[in-house]
Nucleic acid binder design. Structure first.
Ligand SMILES: [Mn+2]
Ligand SMILES: [Mn+2]
Ligand SMILES: [Mn+2]
Ligand SMILES: [Mn+2]
Lengths: 215, 215
DNA sequence: AAATTGTTTTAGACTAGACTAAAAAATATT
DNA sequence: AATATTTTTTAGTCTAGTCTAAAACAATTT
């Protein structure tokens, strides 16, 4: 499988996690910053290889085979991110682009040894689940901070937006995975939140709150 | 720089280490298992980018810029090999092909952090020197076992042939980097060697002896 | 139901990197 | 010095992956 094929599979996989319906050509093109015509070409090729179910004009979905292949790429991506943060001391906002390269290294043995070396982690530095060697995923029940009520407490276990900008903002506010969070007040006017992070009280916008997962 | 360009640079670099003269198109083609015409095309492109000195029909050599670029690829290759053996517990005959992939990951920061993580090694698992971040190489004086006289003793510090077959043979004979070697006898008839490896006495062919570096 | 708008596919072109076959240049042999 | 052989380059073709522009189809509005 080529780099490009792998990137398409991964994109379709991520889009399927959001909407259950058939994934549209345009949605893929937009996410990959490419043109719809390029997507159509690739979908034909992936369909030929039985990695996707593709019917002209009706969007696309992964086959079982395609799903497993996609999961293996996601597995590699998240294990490499974990390696970079845990072992090489990168910060969580730096690792995504590197993992985009590393996820294409072809070797089952390598990734399984890396998995062992890291102690078989179940989540990556952004709180996202790492599929195991068989593609199995242990889901963690978590909730967006924006959907929680006043006075609730919990632990920050993940981020929805993993952009460098957002992660740096969280660093500045000293919000990290594992941080203890308490909802002090919800401002109905602008939907902002007054929260306590560990011992410190801060105000965050609704946008921030809707990108933080709490358990 | 593309994967392919990097592979050509690396090949030219390795060929230059052997012969000082201009590297021939055919030599590159043979080493890369490609066709001479493909090589010519690429040499033009690399010359355009000022990575090689190329004059039609007269072979090619690396420019300063090309040399540094090649050294950085070799650096990455050897650091990744070291990582695989030291940290992930691969054996020395398994890592080359993986490093061929990993050497193309683009990030100075990553490779320098990896270097630190490994304790800034100066040699890879095959005894080959690892260039530092500036491309500097600490040469180790070493000698082919085949060029040593009877009764000489030393330590095995490297292998010339790094093929999986040869390395597996060495494993079988319990010859490793660091092994104490003593030359007991040189058979003039077939140029074979009777040697002591640590405490064990064995006979090795001339071909084997000419692929072992001793210090 | 027809017309408009938006989406998707097709057709055709381009680039990188490979190949084969033929031409040109260099080298070796007589 | 002329001829034969080998090496290298050129010319032209192919594939993967991308793009633009046009055509086909689907969805929405009137
Ligand atoms: Mn990521
Ligand atoms: Mn992640
Ligand atoms: Mn190697
Ligand atoms: Mn090596």
């Amino acid at each position: 499988m080529t780099f490009s094929e792998e990137n398409y599979l991964k994109t379709i996989y991520h889009l399927m996690a959001v909407s259950d319906a058939g994934i549209s050509t345009n949605a893929i093109a937009e996410k990959m910053e490419t043109k719809a015509s390029s997507v159509t070409d690739m979908l034909k090729k992936l369909a030929e290889k039985e990695l996707v179910n593709y019917v002209k004009y009706q969007g696309v979905s992964l086959t079982e085979k395609g799903q497993l292949a996609a999961k293996m790429i996601v597995r590699k991506h998240r294990l490499w991110e974990t390696f970079l943060v845990e072992k090489l001391d990168f910060s969580w906002d730096e690792v995504h682009d590197l993992a985009e390269q590393l996820e294409h290294i072809k070797s089952e043995k390598l990734i399984n040894k890396l998995d062992d070396f890291l102690g078989n982690p179940t989540e990556d530095p952004h709180g996202d689940a790492i599929p195991d060697a068989n593609g199995r995923i242990t889901k963690i029940e978590k909730q967006l901070l924006s959907e929680m009520d006043k006075n609730r407490v919990g632990i920050c276990v993940g981020v929805k937006d993993t952009s460098s900008d957002f992660l740096k903002y969280l660093d500045k506010q000293e919000i990290a995975l594992g941080s203890h969070i308490e909802i002090i007040e919800k401002e109905s006017f602008d939907s902002s939140f007054r929260i306590r992070v560990e011992t410190k009280e801060i105000t965050i916008s609704h946008k921030i709150a809707s990108n933080l997962y709490i358990k």
